[in-house]
Write a protein that binds this DNA or RNA. Sequence first.
DNA 1: GCCAACGTTGGC
DNA 2: GCCAACGTTGGC
Length: 136
Amino acid sequence: MNYWLIKSEPFKYSWSTFVKDQITFWDGVRNYQARNNLREMRVGEMCLFYHSNEDKQVVGIAEIVKEFYQDPTTEDPNWVVVDVKPVNTLLKPVTLNQIKSDPRLNNIGMIKQPRLSVIKITQLEFNTILELSNEN
DNA sequence: GCCAACGTTGGC
DNA sequence: GCCAACGTTGGC
């Protein structure tokens, strides 16, 4: 079982839009590493949903409901999407600062590779972020 | 196959 | 709005 962190710019596709939609395909990935991560995602695996740019915080939890298939927004067979649905809105969002300042999250992929939009994280990192969300 | 140039992303 | 980091492209 893998855990993931997916990033979106809130003005492009925000958590609240996602909650309204209930289900969406995660498109627009044009990076091979991120694409490879999409291909590894399995139904039932959990993702943290992170708002980049203005927000810079983890705002919710999503679940993979359909494994990768051809990106419907392009003919190029290199690119795939997965279907995700929202599971939970975090009581308190977890900010990038909190993530950076927690020693357990020193090695989280999103800090080492800030530009990657689909990142594999460990169960510990996943749980730690949920814990941070409850603590404040 | 290397590397410079360029584009994109995201934090500040 | 700037800039650093990084990925991609294209010329050699």
